[in-house]
Write a protein that binds this DNA or RNA. Structure first.
Lengths: 110, 110
DNA sequence: CGTGTAAGGAATTCTGACACG
DNA sequence: CGTGTAAGGAATTCTGACACG
């Protein structure tokens, strides 16, 4: 993942088991697995198949929990996520284009 | 623990099970439990008794592993740790005394 | 739609001990 | 001293399903 810096190393490392995530978030295993099925979180798996979560996942789950309490549905949350991803992609693309323009102007290579 | 700042939150949070620590450090469960008995690391426990480690613990274990490879004994490692703790304490004490002197001079309260 | 639960199996972790050295 | 291992039990996690709504 080239999406985050070195400093965030521990934020994205998937090392937490589902039981601990339950304690951290107050959610049930059932809920956590369901949000995964609805593509709101993406834990990794051990060889055997046990889920492993990152602190970023825990933060995401707390956000999800709040919005679910407010009556939002998983499908809406999914769309919201998708929009944010699209925006991130747009920004990156725009930056790339500007860089390209500059390099062309100055006759450089990237 | 007032020993570390808010930014370190994820570094000191005890959320990792021993199996994951094994993968992260390359050490065996036996070794990790032994270093605990020798007071080199201090995992927390779940209600049931399962050990939980922090990323800081993992870093410490990697350091321990290196020094054990170099032939150092756990007793020496323990002393080394103790010395560092003492030094930290000295520093804090000195800071406190200086602050006290200044406050006295300016007739303030802390 | 979102979540609870009982079911059964497989992997995880724990402790205390024997072993070698 | 530091670490491997077999032993037996208890808790963890997994999946698919029935349930309610």
């Amino acid at each position: 993942m080239a999406t985050h810096s070195q400093k965030d190393a521990y934020l994205y490392k998937k090392v937490i088991t589902i039981g601990t995530v339950c304690e951290l978030t107050g959610l049930s295993e059932r809920q956590i697995r369901y949000y995964e099925k609805r593509k709101l979180i993406f834990p990794e798996r051990t060889e055997r198949g046990n889920r492993k979560y990152s602190f970023a996942d825990v933060e995401a789950l707390m956000d999800i929990a709040n919005k679910m309490e407010d009556g939002m549905q998983t499908s809406e949350l999914r769309k919201e996520m998708q929009r944010k991803e699209d925006k991130r992609y747009d920004t990156k693309l725009r930056e790339r284009m500007i860089r390209g323009q500059l390099n062309a102007y100055f006759n450089k290579r990237d």
